[in-house]
């Protein structure tokens, strides 16, 4: 790929005090409530959050598809629309199918023709694994192939910024694995990548940084390892009478503990360590269940929403 003049990607992506409100049937819906994020050129960042967190709304504003009600967005120092017109952005939007009656190659070729410095069409088909079905009509593709063709449309523009909004939704396990390996190869060319997902594992495996969103706000932002430690907790549930939760919270691998009647619920940073320690010290513990904490629960905790269980948590 040709080296871009550094000035073209100066400034990375900046979101300052971004606000977006929609009119809803029961009053205004505050989709995005003030977001400040900067993403440096060359970074791969994940926008992580449950459905309704405001990820797609944020992406729409970043792509110039929607106007913020407050705040500003700049992409490489320019307003989004200008960055789009300059061919700096390639994106795979959430959901959506392909138009009919064209072959995969015709579709990708047409898209490439719109950009100043596109990727070779054969290369785009090759890396997305569409070579074998290049002459197929788009309406004949399977769900996973359609997603790959949409991905080819995004990368054939050879963009400085690649935006992917929940790209793996229609894919099976194998499809996902392939998809992310192509994405990482693209990011390795020094391009900036931002993807939205509600899977912590996807963010962890494919991004340098995760930006956690909930209820239209950024609730945590940092290296994925750090985020994973904060939200990737498992819950250990056991029946165990007469032990003070604050004592349990001190067990290795346990972040916090609470009691519900005879049951204790331990939030674990390392559930393997926690269960060994628990059974060693309290052989009476029984009915043990270990579950992966859902992202939604973690978000509730991080956002500090008024919630009985959260307020009962006992810190170690």
């Amino acid at each position: 790929m040709t080296a871009q003049a550094p000035a073209q990607t100066d400034g990375g992506i900046r979101l300052n005090g971004l606000i977006k409100t929609f009119r809803g049937p029961h009053g205004p819906i505050h989709a995005v409530r003030g977001i400040d994020v900067s993403i440096a050129a060359g970074e791969t960042a994940a926008l992580l959050g449950p459905n309704g967190a405001g990820k797609s709304t944020t992406i729409d504003m970043m792509l110039g598809l929607s106007k913020p009600d407050g705040g500003t967005v700049t992409v490489f120092g320019r307003p989004p629309r200008e960055a789009v017109d300059a061919g700096l952005i390639g994106a795979m939007l959430q959901s959506g199918a392909l138009i009919r009656d064209v072959s995969v190659r015709e579709l990708v070729t047409m898209m490439a023709s719109l950009y100043p410095d596109p990727m070779d069409v054969d290369e785009a088909l090759e890396v997305t694994g569409l070579k074998a079905m290049a002459s197929q009509r788009t309406q004949k593709l399977s769900g996973g192939e359609t997603q790959r063709a949409r991905f080819a449309l995004a990368i054939v523009s050879n963009p400085e910024l690649l935006v992917l909004d929940e790209p793996t939704v229609a894919m099976d396990v194998e499809g996902r694995r392939e998809f992310w390996s192509i994405m990482r190869a693209f990011a390795a060319r020094g391009r900036t990548v931002l993807f939205a997902t509600h899977y912590l594992e996807e963010a962890d495996a494919n991004a340098d940084r995760a930006i956690l969103m909930a209820h239209g706000r950024v609730v945590a932002d940092g290296p994925t390892t750090e985020i994973k430690a904060r939200v990737g907790r498992r819950t250990l549930r056991a029946t165990l009478e007469d032990v003070d939760p604050s004592t349990l919270a001190c067990l290795p691998g346990v972040a916090s503990a609470e009691r519900h009647g005879d049951a204790v619920i331990l939030s674990c940073t390392d559930s393997d360590q926690a269960i060994r320690a628990l059974l060693e010290r309290y052989p009476a513990a029984r009915d043990i269940e270990i579950t992966g904490g859902s992202l939604e629960e973690a978000f509730l905790e991080l956002t500090g929403e008024p919630d009985d269980e959260v307020s009962e948590l006992v810190a170690p």
């Binding site: 959506g96 138009i99 719109l114």
Partner: peptide, 18 residues
């Protein structure tokens, strides 16, 4: 209307097509 339904119009919007 059909193109909008499948999201194609939005895809074109984020390309430099004038």
């Amino acid at each position: 209307a059909g193109e909008r339904q499948v999201g194609w119009t939005r895809q074109l919007r984020i390309s430099p097509l004038s």
